[in-house]
Simulated scan of single mutants.
Amino acid sequence: MRPRKDNDIILVPYNPGRHWVLTVLDMKTNTCYYLDSTRNSISNPVLRQNIES
């Protein structure tokens, strides 16, 4: 396992069954993004709520 750099970005694709969503973790800024092309989708409200909090 390589050491983590401060500028690492981790991509977490997820398919809840109907379409793909993407979570992006920016380790440098300690920020998390939830990207869903359907915007109003409730495909995984628990995942979205955890990311938003």
Rank of each mutant, 00 (worst) to 15 (best):
M1H: 14
M1S: 15
R2W: 11
R2L: 14
R2A: 15
R2S: 13
R2V: 13
R2H: 14
P3V: 15
P3M: 15
P3I: 15
R4G: 13
K5Y: 11
K5A: 15
D6P: 10
N7P: 09
D8R: 14
D8M: 05
D8V: 11
D8I: 07
I9K: 10
I9F: 06
I10S: 13
I10Y: 13
L11H: 12
L11Q: 11
L11T: 08
L11W: 12
L11M: 14
L11P: 08
V12R: 09
P13V: 07
P13N: 07
Y14E: 10
Y14Q: 09
Y14T: 07
Y14K: 07
Y14W: 08
N15G: 08
N15T: 07
N15M: 09
P16H: 06
P16V: 01
P16W: 01
P16C: 02
G17S: 03
G17D: 04
G17R: 01
G17V: 04
R18S: 15
R18L: 12
H19G: 09
W20S: 10
W20E: 10
V21K: 00
V21G: 04
V21P: 00
L22Y: 01
L22H: 06
T23V: 15
T23A: 11
T23C: 10
V24K: 01
V24E: 00
V24D: 00
V24H: 03
V24S: 03
V24N: 00
L25R: 01
L25P: 01
L25W: 06
D26G: 00
D26A: 03
D26F: 06
K28M: 07
T29H: 13
T29Q: 13
T29G: 08
N30S: 11
N30P: 05
T31N: 02
T31D: 08
T31H: 05
T31E: 12
C32A: 14
C32R: 11
C32L: 14
Y33E: 02
Y33Q: 06
Y34W: 04
Y34V: 04
Y34T: 08
Y34L: 03
L35C: 07
L35G: 04
D36F: 00
D36Y: 10
S37D: 08
S37H: 09
T38H: 11
R39N: 10
S41H: 02
I42N: 15
S43L: 01
S43P: 04
P45T: 10
P45H: 03
P45M: 10
V46E: 10
V46T: 12
L47I: 02
R48D: 05
R48Q: 06
R48V: 05
R48S: 04
R48L: 00
Q49N: 13
Q49K: 11
Q49T: 11
N50I: 08
E52F: 05
E52K: 09
S53E: 04
S53V: 05
S53L: 02
